[in-house]
């Protein structure tokens, strides 16, 4: 039995489920405009846009934002290089332990962040590496590589291997083949993977808590700010920015990888 219309009860249940997931986010936005700055009071006693100005003037916000952007950018860059290389190796060649490598690359995203965090922290301690910007980057790169790898490996699998041979056959050396055939075919997958990796890194809390020294990334800053009862709506303003900054790349990634289901180079 199959019908085109869902029963009314199911529609309502689905609507409630979606509302439950998304209304709290709207609340965050609403509190960014409240006049009450000590507690979250409903309904907000008044509306103001002054918190945007206050946020703009706070150097700690800028510091955290700048750190987050730099960490996300560099982890993404590392992930793009390593993830692509790894995906190419796993999908293009057969070697002993290939499945194991594939699993071990994906593992960091399946492991709870707290495990990754603790293990990295103790590893850094053992190796006497002081916590710094670079330890945060390393921590983030572990899971950023996974998203890039997953995107790239799927595209590599769908790109016919004979394309590379066709390019070589027509006179292109390895570099030219990469430049003119491989890169154009995996570009959207890399962009999508990169955007997802950036978004993941940008709002990461758990691994960061374990791998950061004194620095505060934006999510860490927000976490600390929540327990402090001063200028609370500043946190909400920042939250709004984070939602927008992470949502846009994810949306972009979705649009980039949509409609690429046809097998590239299948040719039949």
């Amino acid at each position: 039995m199959r019908s085109d219309r869902a029963p009314l009860g199911l529609k309502i249940a689905a609507g409630l489920g979606l509302a439950f997931m998304h209304l709290p986010i709207l609340l965050i936005f609403v509190y960014a405009f409240t006049t009450e700055d000590k507690s979250y009071q409903w309904p907000p006693p008044g509306f103001t846009t002054k918190w945007f100005g206050v946020t703009w003037a706070r150097p700690d916000v800028w510091e955290a934002l700048s750190l987050s952007v730099r960490v996300a950018a560099i982890s993404t860059a590392i992930a793009l290089v390593l993830g692509t290389l790894c995906a190419a190796a796993v999908s293009r060649t057969k070697f002993f332990g290939r499945e194991v490598v594939s699993l071990m690359v994906i593992l960091p995203i399946a492991l709870p962040g707290i495990i990754t965090g603790i293990s990295l922290r103790s590893a850094f301690n053992l190796a006497d590496i002081p916590f710094s910007f670079w330890t945060i980057v390393l921590g983030h790169a572990t899971f950023c590589v996974v998203v890039v790898y997953n995107n790239a490996v799927a595209r590599f699998r769908r790109t016919s291997g004979s394309l590379v041979e066709a390019s070589m056959d027509l006179g292109a050396d390895g570099f030219q083949t990469f430049r003119y055939v491989i890169l154009p075919n995996i570009a959207t997958a890399l962009l999508a993977g990169g955007m997802l990796a950036f978004a993941l890194s940008f709002d990461e809390v758990i691994v960061t808590t374990f791998t950061a020294g004194q620095q505060q990334t934006l999510p860490i800053w927000m976490l600390e700010e929540l327990v402090r009862p001063r200028e609370r709506p500043v946190t909400n303003v920042v939250a709004m920015v984070v939602v927008i900054v992470t949502f846009l790349p994810i949306l972009g990634a979705y649009y980039l990888t949509r409609g690429t289901d046809t097998v590239a180079g299948q040719g039949k």
Binding site: S160, S162, L163, E165, A166, S167, M168, D169, L170, G171, A172, D173, V181, P184, N185, A264, G265, Q266, G267, K268
Partner: peptide, 20 residues
């Protein structure tokens, strides 16, 4: 001699046309 230096060209079974 690598493939790109041979005066030999191939028509592939799956044609291998560049999709982009």
């Amino acid at each position: 001699v690598p493939p790109y230096k041979r005066h030999v060209n191939t028509v592939f079974q799956d044609y291998a046309l560049f999709p982009h």
